[in-house]
């Protein structure tokens, strides 16, 4: 099978104190040569995903799921390891980045499509289809602040799934709108996948996730602890989370710590 994503021995270190500083603090740290203690948000993760494959990433809070997506998206450069993603990449990580409540539906549609990397001609050509999909005919002339939150999400989702992509990264946003709209989103994602688009989904265990993703990856404290078929991973992860599988608690590695100056 042709590979769309290859990452090798990728590690990301977070330094909790390494965030934005005031000038005084910054100079102090610089002069004293102090480096903050950190921890691995991802630790030596190696992963290959084939073209048109669906991968579900599961794990507890803070396991590194979002960090993994950020690395795949090229938003975050890993401290170690190599990342390769083939083809056009699109993200569904936060719906409606850049939306503004004072702009109307059409204006927000164009703006968001542009931010996601669509061409002017593509937007023009697909605008009708996007509004159809979002079921927002008759509302698009209104400012976004008059939309219900469900309508905003529908618009954002509709725009995002009309961008061309070879790899689509999805973070926790499969539950959009009511049941009927969710079904529609699901169908659309299946369609994209069957056309050869690779899906990487971070989400909670659900029937929808199962039908989208044939494969599962379980992250625990930044490490890939299980990479198998979705059913196997979902079963193991669920029993682990329910605490029924005591021996797994003991077998899983503790969070690796990286100390100062290392």
């Amino acid at each position: 099978m042709q590979e769309a994503i290859r990452i090798e021995n990728v590690s990301v270190i977070y330094r909790p104190k390494g965030s934005r500083k005031l000038l005084r603090q910054y100079l102090q740290d610089r002069l004293t040569g102090r480096r903050d203690e950190g921890f691995y948000a991802l630790h030596e993760v190696t992963l290959r995903v084939g073209r048109g494959e669906g991968l579900a990433v599961v794990g507890a809070n803070g396991a590194g799921k979002s960090t993994l997506l950020a690395v795949l998206a090229g938003l975050l450069e890993p401290d170690e390891g190599a990342v390769q993603v083939d083809g056009r990449l699109s993200t569904l990580m936060e719906l409606g980045s850049g939306f503004h409540p004072d702009l109307n539906g059409w204006e927000n549609l164009r703006l968001y499509a542009a931010i996601l990397g669509m061409a002017r001609a593509e937007v023009k050509q697909r605008a009708e289809a996007i509004v159809d999909f979002a079921e927002l005919h008759g509302y698009m002339e209104q400012p976004l602040r008059t939309f219900s939150s469900g309508m905003v999400l529908r618009l954002a989702f509709a725009v995002a799934v009309h961008a061309d992509c070879d790899v689509l990264l999805i973070d926790e946003i499969l539950a959009v709108g009511d049941a009927a709209f969710q079904k529609k989103c699901h169908r659309r994602l299946m369609e994209l996948r069957d056309r050869g688009c690779t899906l990487v989904c971070v989400s909670h265990i659900s029937a929808m996730l199962e039908s989208l993703c044939g494969r599962g990856l379980w992250l625990h404290h930044g490490r890939a602890v299980m990479d198998a078929s979705y059913q196997e991973v979902a079963a193991a992860y669920t029993s682990f989370m329910n605490g029924t599988d005591r021996h797994l608690w003991d077998a899983l590695p503790a969070a690796p710590v990286r100390t100062a100056g290392a």
Binding site: G81, A82, V85, G117, A119
Partner: peptide, 15 residues
């Protein structure tokens, strides 16, 4: 250090 991986640019120049 991380080796830079191959990937397409975030956005086509024309966009």
């Amino acid at each position: 250090m991380a080796r830079p991986g191959a990937r397409q640019p975030a956005m086509r120049r024309s966009n």
